[in-house]
């Protein structure tokens, strides 16, 4: 029983990390209707930047989080403005996917060129220590991720509900043409949305770098899980992504222990396929899974 509870705790903490990565993905997914295959590579870039900042400047990764959020926001804005926006009215709806696939491949291999295939562990004091609650242990770094996950999702939720810009973003997602008729500059909305999605990844990178070493393909690992989370939670749904992230965190932690460590991903992907086939709208989706 104690093992089970510990596994649940681990799963929920991991879910917090998935939540931060997934909310950005689900925003881009739900609002721009774009599957960003390069999302994981943005995380990877953020992790290398964290490593650089920590090792070269001697700063704690958590201190690097605010500037990383800013840097990734700018990178996101640039990608949307100069790569994806020109493709907005393309004849074939797939070309935006091609562009993000190309970007993803280019970034992975750029990292391989610059850093090689080695793993880069980011040193950070205190992050790997743990606090004990009776018989249970929680890694401080994971607790921080979990708390940040809740804060990010709550903040984004308030932003979307309470501000003019947030409402305009939701309106654009629900009816693009009608939003234009209200006076919303849809292209600007898309740029801001992609920026926010990338900024979330900036935060995630700073938090995850001290726990998982950076490598060229680290993004692929996380983003595939994030896709599962997004589809499970329902694309475009913030609280869906949060609950989905916690669920997938639990599945990850429990199946690794009870089935086999190297088969936990099989369980997650099998689950993913089942969701796609039988409930493509996810748990909280708005019904756009397979039109």
């Amino acid at each position: 029983m104690e093992t089970f509870v510990q596994l649940v705790i681990n799963g929920l903490m991991l879910g917090g990390l998935f939540a931060i990565i997934s909310v950005g993905l689900t925003l881009i997914f739900g609002i721009i209707r774009l599957v960003n295959f390069a999302h994981g590579e943005l995380l990877m870039v953020g992790m290398y930047l964290t490593w650089l900042g920590t090792v070269k400047l001697g700063l704690h990764p958590y201190v690097l989080a605010p500037p990383l959020v800013l840097v990734l926001f700018v990178i996101g804005v640039l990608i949307q403005r100069f790569i994806l926006q020109p493709l907005l009215d393309a004849r074939d709806a797939h070309v935006q996917i091609f562009a993000t696939v190309g970007l993803s491949t280019a970034l992975i291999n750029l990292a391989l060129l610059v850093f090689g295939a080695d793993l880069y562990a980011t040193p950070a004091s205190g992050v790997r220590e743990s606090i004990t609650l009776g018989p249970f242990r929680i890694l401080i770094g994971q607790l921080v991720m979990f708390v940040c996950g809740i804060v990010v999702v709550a903040a984004l939720h308030l932003f979307m509900e309470r501000t003019y810009l947030g409402r305009a973003i939701r309106a654009t997602a629900q009816h693009r043409a009608a939003a234009q008729l209200m006076g919303v500059d849809v292209k600007r909305i898309y740029i801001v949305t992609f920026g926010i999605g990338a900024a979330c990844v900036g935060l995630a990178a700073a938090l995850v770098a001290p726990i998982y070493p950076a490598s060229p393909t680290v993004g692929t690992y996380f983003v595939l899980t994030a896709f599962v989370v997004v589809v499970l939670g329902g694309m475009g749904s913030l609280h869906g992504a949060f609950i989905g992230a916690l669920l997938i965190g639990l599945v990850d932690s429990l199946s690794a222990f009870y089935i086999a460590p190297d088969l936990k991903e099989v369980v997650i992907f099998a689950l993913f396929i089942l969701i796609l086939l039988f409930r493509p709208t996810g748990l909280f989706g708005l019904g756009r899974g397979s039109e």
């Binding site: 493709l87 004849r91 291999n109």
Partner: peptide, 22 residues
Amino acid sequence: SALGLHGFVYGTVLVLIVLFVP
């Protein structure tokens, strides 16, 4: 020995193609 060069060229060419020769 330039590791990753293949993929970098492929990815970059694809993005350029998509943008300029759809």
